[in-house]
Amino acid sequence: MSMIESVPTPNRRLRRGRRNATLRRMVRETQLTVDNLIAPLFIVEGQNIRKPISSMPGQFQLSLDQLDTEIAELVAAQIPAVLLFGIPLHKDTQGSSAWDANGPVPSAIRAIKQQAPHLVVIADVCMCEYTDHGHCGILTSGEPETITVDNDPTLELLARASVAYAAAGADVVAPSAMMDGQIAAIRYGLDQAGYHDTIILSYAAKFASAFYGPFREAAESTPQFGDRRSYQMDAANAREAIAETALDVAEGADWLMVKPAGAYLDIIRAVYEEFDLPLAAYQVSGEYAMIKAAAANGWIDEQRVALESLLAIRRAGASMIITYYAKVAAQWLKA
């Protein structure tokens, strides 16, 4: 008798449920569908602009007159929502173009709502694309090495921009500046202006991440000095992420977000288990760019890796995934 023959036969063989694609589909625990996907878009002032973003292959800066084709493709792919970032021609110390009714984001919101009324439009609320210094609000004074964003005066600007986006027709505003008290300030501003139904999607746990690199090119928002570690979260801190999220929930956030996604799956899971609000996660530019670069070198199967990464974010607990793969992932899932 061989050694193998003497081993008891297992009563439970989990491989039985993996024998073919139909069985695997029937017992799949986590579902990734097009309904989970949100497509980010970069709106630039000007005309006839469809400028490729070199560090993010397949992504573009779009002027308003180029937006209708992109929206038509997203609607055809059944993507439920878009997230808008604006790139203005005029930048100043306060980022005043952020609340300009004729600025890139309000103009894009109106155009999208006219073309596709049922597409959910989310407007990112931050000042970094609009300030001439590239930081997320009004700066403090002092020596260059001590200058940071002045928290409380910045709240008024974030609220003002949020009201401008709601007035243009945004369904959701998504504050990403990581200022203390920003949710309360924005909720108050929206309610005072009569926009009681506008949803606030809080970037509740946004980390000071190296994965944002390509976004700085896409949004033209690179800080002119220093970095954002004095207001975005330290990558080492998990319990602080729960504390940050709890504050936003208490201030009136409707939906929550963790950013980035791939390197922060533990944070997504922790927020999912702690809070009973819809949860989004942002698969950021660096995550997208790494998959693209590896695929371009023939090192990985792009479709399988991209879908697996999105499934992992979904499995961690996010029901909404902001991803630059949204449109092509929708096509892959349909196929």
Rank of each mutant, 00 (worst) to 15 (best):
F207S: 00
V258I: 14
A159I: 09
D171I: 00
R19T: 14
I79S: 04
G226M: 06
V44L: 00
C126D: 10
E287I: 10
K292A: 12
V75E: 09
A166F: 00
E145F: 05
A170V: 04
T69D: 10
T22H: 09
Q283V: 08
R15C: 07
A243M: 12
I79G: 04
D171W: 02
D92W: 00
E302W: 13
A261K: 03
R228Q: 07
D124W: 01
E287L: 06
L67S: 01
W255P: 03
D124S: 03
F215Y: 07
R13P: 05
I49V: 13
R15T: 14
R187F: 11
V27D: 04
N36S: 14
Q47L: 08
A250R: 15
D68L: 03
G226W: 03
G189M: 02
M257N: 07
A39Q: 15
A210E: 11
E240G: 10
Q303H: 10
Q192M: 11
M56L: 12
P153T: 14
F211R: 02
E70V: 05
D100A: 12
V82T: 09
A208I: 03
S55T: 14
T69Y: 06
A111M: 03
A330T: 12
F211M: 10
L32M: 15
S55V: 00
R239H: 04
D266L: 11
I313V: 11
S6N: 14
S55D: 06
P175Q: 08
A218W: 08
R25P: 06
I4T: 15
H118R: 14
L119Q: 02
R216A: 10
W99M: 00
A281F: 04
E240I: 10
A21I: 12
F275R: 07
E287C: 13
E251P: 04
A193F: 01
E302V: 08
E129A: 07
D152Q: 12
S162E: 03
I300Y: 04
T69G: 09
L157A: 12
L83E: 01
P10K: 11
A270P: 01
I268Q: 00
D248E: 13
A263W: 04
V149M: 08
L84A: 01
A250D: 06
L84V: 01
R314A: 14
Q59W: 02
D92P: 02
P88A: 08
D150P: 06
G194M: 06
P10S: 08
R13M: 13
V121I: 12
A246W: 09
R216L: 15
D254T: 01
A218P: 06
V271L: 10
S319V: 12
I49L: 15
Q59I: 08
R25K: 15
A295I: 04
F215K: 00
V173N: 04
Y264G: 02
A281S: 14
A39I: 02
D171N: 13
